[in-house]
């Protein structure tokens, strides 16, 4: 099953708080080709999550358009083609692990999935033996893994993730990153990952979008072309750190403006040098 392209075109969104309009997203355009892996980075509160909520039809845009596979988010989400994992696991406390993973099928009104498949997902996220456990009996990291398994349950063609690994410890996070890369490589769902981890973004994505403080605009669009599969050794590669440092400079309010100008100039002038070099070294 192929991924579906995800297109934001001139999207704006404002919230009204105590009668005043608070612009959250300002004329943002972003094109995620089918099967691509895009990471979104930006200062907290910049509107990343709102972007994701728009793509899930949980909010509607004030202007501009949003298309998933040429269709509206609402109808695509109803077809079960979109998988979602939030920062918070949002598990139903009265359901067991397997029942929670099964939830999307029930929401979509489909028949129960093959238990083999659910077991496969549970094994994938390393929770074998916890099929019958309730969320209250699991640690925070384990709950988050259930949420990730749930996001994969419908074999989505688009995967939207809002800091899904935020609650995990570093080792587990690395492990889950590897898993996510493997899953993505195998099925190639179009993936949009919101994260605070610069290294995580660079490690996983084809390109990293850096957003401005609220209202969100695209500050920089950085292609990442390290060859795949990417192993743990990439984390020690100087080229990897070079890309991370550039992004860190963009996110740092002190240096952000200058870096963004340089970044735009570089984008206009020629293909970015560092990832090209990295591509050859990896």
């Amino acid at each position: 099953m192929q991924g579906l392209p995800l297109q934001f075109t001139n999207v704006s969104k404002a919230f009204s708080i105590k009668g005043k309009a608070l612009p959250v997203i300002d004329n943002l355009s972003l094109d995620c080709p089918a099967g691509s892996f895009t990471a979104l980075l930006g200062p907290s509160g910049c509107g990343k999550s709102t972007l994701l909520r728009l793509a899930l039809a949980l909010e509607s845009e004030d202007s501009g358009s949003l298309r998933i596979g040429g269709d509206s988010p609402r109808s695509i989400c109803r077809s079960g083609a979109v998988g979602v994992a939030f920062q918070d696991a949002a598990l139903l406390p009265w359901r067991s692990v397997e029942e929670n993973i099964r939830l999307p099928f029930e929401v979509l009104g489909r028949k129960r999935p093959d238990p083999e498949k659910i077991n496969g997902l549970i094994e994938l996220v390393g929770l074998k033996g916890f099929e019958k456990a309730r969320p209250g009996e699991l640690s925070g990291g384990m709950r988050q893994r259930v949420a990730i398994a749930r996001s994969l349950a419908t074999e989505p063609r688009v995967l939207l993730m809002d800091e899904p690994f935020g609650a995990l410890d570093l080792i587990l996070r690395r492990q889950m990153n590897l898993e996510l890369q493997r899953i993505w490589s195998a099925k190639r769902p179009t993936t949009l990952l919101i994260t605070h981890g610069i290294d995580e973004a660079v490690y996983l994505a084809d390109r990293v979008i850096v957003l401005s403080p609220r209202p969100a605009r695209v500050l920089a669009d950085i292609p990442v072309s390290f060859s795949r599969p990417r192993g743990a050794e990439l984390l020690r590669d100087p080229a990897f750190h070079h890309v991370c440092d550039r992004i860190a400079a963009l996110l740092d309010p002190e240096t952000s403006a200058a870096s963004a100008a340089a970044e735009t100039a570089a984008l206009d002038a020629a293909p970015v040098a560092a990832p090209a070099k990295a591509g050859t070294t990896a």
Binding site: L56, A57, C77, R78, V84, L92, V107, L108, T154
Partner: peptide, 25 residues
Amino acid sequence: DPRAVDLIRAYGGGPLRTLWLLRLR
């Protein structure tokens, strides 16, 4: 839990399904 409500809505669940799967319980 409003996040669970979001999740169900994200899979296209309407108010009735949210009621049945989440709110009543």
